[in-house]
Simulated assay, not measured.
Amino acid sequence: MLLKDFYTISSLENTADSKYLATILINEEHEVFKGHFPGNPIMPGVCMMQIIKELTEQITESPLFMQSLSNVKFMALINPFNTPELRLELDVATIEDNLVKVKNITCFNETVALKLSCVYKKV
């Protein structure tokens, strides 16, 4: 985990062939939120992308390096005090021996916060 104690995984389950559902709990007391932004904490987009990478590494049991991103859409702000629990849908497919393609939808309650597609290279 790049940011120590930033989040905990409540569940990570394989729901179909290449589809996974993860539930995570954000630590609203983490230092990141004191600077982003004081008095109005918002989850940094780069932290969301790191969480997706770390979950994908756990699923593939392999260290990964982000090769490309496409269709990245931040659709709602995540305030960890209001909505500390996030649900991440991951479609993880190996497209070549060393490449993994991931499609993600991240939600809180019924609100979609992030959609993205990315390709990781196994290292």
Rank of each mutant, 00 (worst) to 15 (best):
E54H: 04
I24M: 01
L90A: 04
F108M: 02
I26N: 06
T56E: 00
K53E: 10
Y7I: 02
I26W: 07
E28D: 08
D5T: 04
T94P: 07
K19D: 02
D97L: 08
K101N: 05
F6H: 07
L21T: 05
N98D: 10
S11N: 10
T94G: 10
D17E: 08
D97R: 07
T8E: 14
I105L: 09
N79Y: 08
L2T: 02
Y7T: 03
E110L: 12
T94W: 09
M75I: 03
K53Y: 10
T8H: 13
E13I: 10
C47P: 03
M49I: 12
Q67R: 12
P44L: 11
M1T: 09
T111A: 00
Q50H: 13
V112E: 15
I42S: 00
E28Y: 03
L64P: 02
A22P: 06
E96K: 15
F6P: 05
P63W: 08
C47E: 07
T8M: 12
P38C: 05
V100N: 02
S117M: 14
F65E: 06
V102F: 11
A22I: 05
N104C: 14
T106M: 15
L77T: 09
M75R: 15
G39P: 12
N82F: 02
E29L: 13
P84A: 00
L88Q: 01
Y20Q: 01
S70G: 11
K34I: 00
D97C: 00
I26D: 05
E96V: 06
L99G: 05
C107S: 14
A113G: 10
I78S: 10
C47F: 07
N98K: 14
K121S: 10
K103C: 03
E89T: 03
M48R: 07
P84W: 01
Y7A: 05
Q67H: 10
E89L: 06
H30F: 06
E57Y: 06
E57V: 04
D5R: 13
K121T: 08
P84Q: 00
M66V: 12
L25F: 12
K121Y: 15
A93S: 09
T106D: 03
I42V: 13
P63F: 10
I59D: 04
